[in-house]
Simulated scan of single mutants.
Amino acid sequence: MRLYYRGPDAMVTSEHFVHRTPTSTRAFLIRDLRDVGITSAEEPGTPIVTLAGGTAILLAAALPLWKISPLYAIGFLGLAGFGLAAAALVRRNRPRSWLLQATYRGQTVELYASTDARVFNQVSRALRRAIEDARPPSSWDDFAAA
Rank of each mutant, 00 (worst) to 15 (best):
G45S: 08
L127M: 04
I30Q: 03
L99V: 05
P95H: 04
R20K: 05
G75I: 11
F17Q: 05
S14F: 10
G45A: 04
D9A: 08
D32T: 01
R2W: 07
A61S: 14
F17E: 03
K67M: 15
P8A: 11
R92T: 05
R92C: 03
Y112I: 00
R92A: 08
A62H: 08
L58T: 15
V18L: 13
I48T: 07
L65C: 09
G78V: 11
K67G: 14
E15L: 07
R125D: 13
T39E: 13
G7L: 06
S114I: 01
A86Q: 14
A117D: 12
L71S: 08
L127G: 04
R34P: 02
I68F: 13
L77M: 14
T103I: 07
D32Y: 09
L59G: 13
E42P: 06
R118I: 03
G75D: 14
Y112S: 01
S124P: 02
T39P: 02
D35Y: 11
L59M: 14
D116Y: 01
L3C: 07
I30H: 05
R34C: 03
Y112T: 00
P64D: 11
G81R: 09
A126Q: 02
D35W: 10
E43D: 10
T108Q: 04
W98M: 07
T108K: 06
V12R: 03
Y72Q: 07
L111G: 00
V123G: 00
V119W: 01
L111Q: 00
L127D: 02
A41W: 12
V18H: 01
T103Q: 09
A88M: 12
Q122N: 04
S124I: 00
V123Y: 01
S40P: 05
G81I: 09
A102Y: 10
G7I: 13
A88Y: 12
E15F: 06
N121A: 05
Y5W: 11
V123L: 01
D116T: 02
V119D: 10
Q122Y: 06
A80G: 15
T46Q: 09
L79Y: 11
I74G: 08
T50E: 02
S40R: 12
R34M: 05
S14A: 14
R105N: 06
G78M: 15
Q107S: 03
G78C: 10
